[in-house]
């Protein structure tokens, strides 16, 4: 009969209409600013800089090698290298970024900076509601706004961060062992030199130069 399809459709919409009042799980709406869906672990939005410890300026892992700046396809990263050095995450003295800006209005969230970073210093964040009323300044994130703690990283990407932490710990341990071996070797050399000096005394004070290294 003409029109029975229409009646079927009307029945369907009526079922939806009344059903949405009866069963709550029909309504899939999430009241966004108040309610949020839990994010999946692979979620990513824009890069941030990881720092260890409490002070972001001290603990920044970035050594300002500028690989990410060069690799960035839309060229949204700007880095200024420091003149002096300070110890990095492992303990080696390294340069650090005096300026590190990411223009997230340009950033396309490709994650290439994260892929190329040899120091695990830049990672992807999960913040997505970054709207601002200042279109230029508000979206140009500087060093301080980019710096986020390792704890934050652990919270947003637990498995990935655990792997990074383990690798870093291993590297630190290796560096420490190397330093210890070096120190003990130096000490041994010093005692040997001392012993030699005691055996046949010389005027030049050589051990002091050896220890300072």
């Amino acid at each position: 009969m003409l029109g029975d399809g229409i009646l079927k459709g009307l029945a369907e919409t009526a079922r939806n209409f009344f059903g949405s009042y009866v069963s709550r799980d029909r309504l899939t709406t999430i009241q966004y600013p108040e309610q949020r869906d839990p994010q999946i672990e692979a979620a990513r939005s824009f890069p941030f800089l990881v720092f260890d410890g409490a002070d972001w300026q001290q603990g920044l892992r970035c050594v300002s090698c500028q690989i990410c700046e060069k690799e960035c396809p839309p060229k949204c990263i700007f880095i200024e290298k420091s003149k002096d050095k300070k110890p990095d995450a492992v303990g080696k003295p390294q340069f650090y970024p005096v300026r590190f800006d990411i223009d997230i209005s340009v950033c396309m969230s490709c994650q290439i900076c994260v892929e190329v970073c040899p120091f695990d210093a830049i990672k992807m964040d999960v913040d997505y509601d970054l709207s601002t009323d200042d279109r230029f300044g508000g979206l140009l994130l500087d060093r301080q706004r980019l710096a986020k703690s390792n704890e934050h990283y652990n919270k947003i990407h637990p498995t990935e961060a655990a792997a990074v932490d383990a690798a870093l710990a291993e590297e630190r341990a290796k560096a420490k062992a190397a330093a210890e071996a070096k120190a003990s070797a130096a000490a041994k050399a010093a005692t040997e030199a001392k012993a030699a000096a005691v055996a046949n005394p010389a005027p030049a004070p050589q051990p002091a130069a050896g220890e300072s290294q």
């Binding site: 919409t13 939806n16 209409f17 309504l27």
Partner: peptide, 10 residues
């Protein structure tokens, strides 16, 4: 409101 409910929205 009605259209929303028919599409299972609020």
């Amino acid at each position: 409101k009605g259209l929303g409910r028919m599409q299972n929205r609020l």
